[in-house]
Design a protein around this nucleic acid. Structure first.
Length: 210
DNA sequence: ACATTAAGTGATT
DNA sequence: AATCACTTAATGT
């Protein structure tokens, strides 16, 4: 039994299910910035996040990315859940935010486990629910909040996920994730710095208000 | 010393 | 908020 797997999921799943996950799943590791799942990929496995964090991005017609949300330990990708039902392709891109380890589960197991384990059913339903609310939050943020709040939320999320108030990121990278321009990011960050919410360094930002 | 990359800023739309 | 044009600062070779 994988130690990390047990640690991350033994509160959620019964032992019997954990052992099945351990037996049928394949353990895989990714480095930061590795693409775990790309747009158009066929989904044959469903990932359970064990350690690390993953960012989920949507892409527009011109190939510009837009951050939807972050996934942390104990989360799974709702995209895979919905795609496993039919034989669909991924409509999102999943990129490792930090070094990440996953348990890849063959989708055939989905059905049998859904019938067999109550904890699995609960997990799937709850994951769906969480992703949906997360998504609504994101929509609210994009539609109703101004860019400075969006950027500040992004920094807070990133600090939380990396468990470090110092974030190694360039203004350009933020601009790409939030689908805006570098100049706008620079100006807003400057404003946030004057408001004492963050401190700016080259290639690094420190979040002062968490 | 020079080139490259990141970040700051005014002006315009 | 986006874009352009330009400057300044930091970093790599």
């Amino acid at each position: 039994m994988h130690k990390d797997l047990e640690e991350a999921y033994h509160f959620i799943f019964e032992d019997e299910l954990l052992e099945e996950i351990n037996r049928f799943g394949s353990f895989s590791k990714f480095n930061a910035d590795d693409i775990i799942l790309d747009i158009g990929d066929r989904l044959t496995k469903m990932p359970l996040l064990i350690t690390g964090a993953v960012k989920i991005l949507r892409e527009d017609a011109e190939g510009n990315d837009l951050l939807l949300y972050f996934l942390e330990r104990g989360d799974t990708c709702a995209m895979t859940l919905s795609c496993c039902v039919g034989d669909r392709k991924s409509e999102i891109r999943a990129v490792a935010e930090t070094a990440t380890s996953l348990m890849m589960i063959p989708i055939e197991k989905m059905e049998t486990w859904t019938a067999k384990y109550k904890s699995w059913r609960n997990f799937v339903f709850q994951s769906y629910h969480e992703r949906l609310s997360e998504m609504l939050t994101t929509i609210d943020t994009i539609a109703f909040l101004n860019m400075d709040k969006r950027i500040f939320k992004y920094l807070q999320d990133k600090a939380k996920i990396n468990q470090n108030e110092n974030i190694a990121v360039t203004h350009q990278e933020i601009a790409l994730d939030l689908h805006t321009s570098r100049v706008v990011v620079s100006r807003i960050l400057k404003k946030l710095e004057i408001e004492k919410k963050i401190a700016l360094f080259r290639n690094q930002i420190k979040v002062l208000e968490l």
